[in-house]
């Protein structure tokens, strides 16, 4: 009975919307819905006129807010750290000395590597050619996607599918380029798929985003069979067979391996090296 009454009310209301001149709001909603469905169908992730115009208006406002943010945050940070400045300074000086020594040793290895490659007549491996640095100015507010906005665009040489890294490792790739800003999809996004390899065995694997697992900052490796040589704590790097990503960029570490006895595959979870909660500056490098 209540179901019939509800049904009767809804159909009566719908008749009223379409026949009553006073209820023209309902007609506008229907027209609006049809127009929006068509717009959804014909637009995609690629930049369009609307996103470009919006980026010209929103990017300066982003820069203003982020500037204020840095000023206030920086001031508080400075005041909070005044007491520890001396010890921090000593610690940094020691670390600097160690890094200088490590850098010297690495340069020696680099020269030796170059000589050996020349002997074997192998072409020199490019280090990652940096196109530009960029600041993260906004993130997608929804829980389901891991997309953020950077303040560089077409005018700065950014192109679609450009690889984004920071000092910790692989961040993601550019998915939409406007004139003065771009959208970057993190590797933890469910739509992301990166061609990687296991650092020890160099076996190729596909790393997919799994932001709906655990706390949202996790990836997973697909199609790992039970006879794959993989251990917890293993490093994952970008592979040499990817069309987009240069080889050897650190991606993350294996944190969990789940074996399902009923199937021949294992679920492997990877924690990215990059801390997406505190990402502020990134580098864009040329892809292959």
């Amino acid at each position: 009975m209540p179901v019939l009454c509800t049904y009767h009310y809804i159909t009566q209301r719908m008749m009223q919307v379409y026949t009553n001149k006073k209820s023209h709001k309902g007609k506008y909603i229907v027209v609006g819905t049809i127009i929006l469905i068509i717009t959804i169908a014909i637009t995609s992730e690629k930049a369009n006129f609307a996103t470009n115009i919006t980026s010209y208006i929103t990017t300066p406002v982003y820069r203003l807010f982020n500037g204020i943010n840095s000023l206030i945050g920086g001031s508080f940070n400075y005041i909070a750290r005044i007491g520890t400045l001396e010890t921090d300074n000593e610690k940094l000086l020691k670390e600097n000395e160690k890094l200088k020594y490590d850098n010297f040793i690495l340069n020696e290895f680099k020269e030796e590597n170059k000589e050996l490659r020349n002997l074997l007549e192998m072409s020199e491996k490019d280090t990652y050619p940096v196109v530009t640095g960029a600041g993260v100015i906004g993130v997608d507010p929804s829980s389901y996607s891991k997309i953020f906005i950077i303040d560089k665009g077409k005018n700065n040489g950014v192109t679609e599918n450009m690889v984004v890294i920071n000092y910790q490792g692989l961040v993601g790739k550019v998915i939409q380029v406007n004139d003065i800003s771009s959208k970057v999809m993190a590797i933890t996004d469910e739509e992301s798929a990166v061609s990687c390899m296991l650092q020890r065995s160099k076996e190729p694997v596909i790393l997919k985003g799994a932001n709906l697992q655990d706390n949202g900052d996790v990836c997973k490796l697909d199609y790992i069979t039970t006879d794959t040589d993989i251990i917890e704590g293993e490093d994952i790097i970008t592979s040499n067979i990817s069309d987009i990503y240069p080889e050897g960029i650190p991606v993350g570490k294996v944190i969990k391996i789940q074996t399902d006895s009923s199937t021949l595959v294992r679920q492997v979870y990877v924690k990215p090296n990059v801390n997406y909660r505190r990402i502020n500056n990134v580098l864009l490098i040329k892809n292959k």
Partner: peptide
């Protein structure tokens, strides 16, 4: 409510959305 929902949804779509109109449609309703 419908107009401002549509406007806010369009803004979200143009700033961070994947396709133009999805958030606009949802927030309009």
């Amino acid at each position: 409510g419908a107009y401002y929902g549509l406007y806010l949804g369009l803004l979200i779509d143009m700033i961070v959305g994947s396709s133009l109109g999805l958030n606009a449609l949802i927030y309009m309703y």
